[in-house]
């Protein structure tokens, strides 16, 4: 039961993007389409899961003085693995995500989890935490991408869903749209969290 909680907390209660404001750069940069968002979310989840596992395994071997560099090496390795694999097998997606794949290294979600969770908990817990946070991150990305793709292109996952005469609000997939969508979504979340008007 507690393991499930360990996982689901990442979805909403401790959502890395919406609640903890971590990993904002990719949340904006690759959220112009749901496809990219899922790709990015998947890549980050993989790295998060693997680094969580490895770090919770190695936590007793790593002296605390050099733990941060060690974490970084571990994370960077997994990032590179994802980078190379995607480049080989998911060429288009890799091209779309661009430098944001190597930049997963500095995604605060991952280092944050390594430091705050995996370095202190056992492997099983860390796995669930990693999956939960990864899904939470992906959900946030998809949520932003949902609105941006819907409004900005009239599509969802590349399929036209709006009426034929719908005029896409292009700005939603441009840079300002990313900021505005995330800002308004965050506001909406706050509004839902505390129902008192305002």
């Amino acid at each position: 039961m507690s393991l499930i909680k360990e996982m689901t907390k990442g979805f909403f209660k401790e959502n890395p993007v919406f609640v903890m404001a971590l990993g904002l750069c990719p949340a904006l940069a690759v959220s112009s389409s749901i496809e990219n968002a899922i790709g990015m979310g998947g890549a980050a989840t993989f790295v998060l899961l693997c680094s969580n596992i490895l770090i919770s395994l190695l936590k007793n071997l790593i002296p605390s003085k050099i733990r941060i560099p060690c974490y970084i090496v571990v994370i960077a390795s997994f990032v590179t693995i994802v980078d190379m694999t995607m480049n080989a097998y998911l060429f288009e997606l890799h091209k779309n995500l661009g430098i944001f794949i190597p930049l997963i290294v500095v995604n605060c979600v991952i280092l944050g989890r390594a430091e705050a969770f995996a370095g202190r908990n056992n492997v099983v817990k860390s796995i669930f935490d990693g999956i939960g946070m990864g899904i939470g991150f992906t959900l946030a990305l998809v949520a932003v991408a949902f609105f941006r793709e819907l409004l900005g292109a009239g599509q969802l996952l590349g399929v036209n869903v709006m009426p034929a005469n719908y005029q896409p609000i292009l700005i939603a997939i441009l840079a300002p749209g990313a900021f505005l969508t995330l800002g308004l979504l965050l506001g909406l979340m706050n509004l839902l969290k505390k129902p008192e008007a305002d």
């Binding site: 790593i62 050099i66 090496v73 693995i81 190379m84």
Partner: peptide, 14 residues
């Protein structure tokens, strides 16, 4: 040494 070891393993895997 520990840091080097980790880096070395990582490099090898990569």
């Amino acid at each position: 040494l520990i840091l080097f070891l980790i880096a070395a393993v990582a490099s090898a895997v990569l």
